[in-house]
Design a protein around this nucleic acid. Sequence first.
DNA 1: TTATCTGCAAAGCATTTGCAATAGT
DNA 2: ACTATTGCAAATGCTTTGCAGATAA
Lengths: 134, 134
Amino acid sequence: MKRNTWQREAVRAALADNDGFVSAQALHASLREGGSSIGLATVYRALADLAEEGEADSLQQDGEALYRACTPGSHHHHLICRGCGLTVEIEADAVEQWARDVAAAHGFTRPEHVVDVFGLCAACAELQANPSPS
Amino acid sequence: MKRNTWQREAVRAALADNDGFVSAQALHASLREGGSSIGLATVYRALADLAEEGEADSLQQDGEALYRACTPGSHHHHLICRGCGLTVEIEADAVEQWARDVAAAHGFTRPEHVVDVFGLCAACAELQANPSPS
DNA sequence: TTATCTGCAAAGCATTTGCAATAGT
DNA sequence: ACTATTGCAAATGCTTTGCAGATAA
């Protein structure tokens, strides 16, 4: 059976404290800075578990896995700012349906999908237009 | 300026010869088997260039980058079999529109999106149901 | 000629794994 | 007690990089 260790709780909490996506490395570093003595491998293992149990979303970026807390069972997608990492949760019922349909139309079963939209948020777009403001 | 070497051509050709997504490693191996003496690093560099120039799609799976030839400028998505890697190109005009709308609704500009649907193709679903057929 | 590209081997990174010690239950 | 979990360090696997020699322009 799955045991309840303070390490797992720490990872769960650190993930919840964070608004955007975090890498395992970053999460481990921040836990260490917070005085925890948790090991890196443990963070990896905990995150993998959380993701499998549906308590965390994960996505791949630049060859590293990023995680984010999410309410169990709910399925949603993200709008992510390329500049500052700001993440907005988005509803995508229409896309869910479309994914199921397109999979079925080609004889595919057990469909899952990855849908993420990247862009520049208003603030970052502003920054890019005026690199040195005021 | 960008030079035209036989290595770059070889990578472009090998990619075009392949129907699904291929890893850099696999592409390098197949080129070597074909008698080429191209180096692994060169394959990586060529693929990165092709992807940047829009001549190749790329996606991340299991911590490795997969590439696939694509007609420059065209934008499409993929339905990928988790079992055998079979890839079907899918139209997603509705999703394109949705992505643009959702980005705009949140003040995001220059939207790009990642939309991939994974599933089990008919053949692989069959195999999983009957692990050792006839 | 000469700036870019190649190949090799050596890093570099994120992630995984083996194993003895530790700590839930 | 029993066994899952931890932490460390070593191992793995993909990708990048430094550099000397090759090569396209």
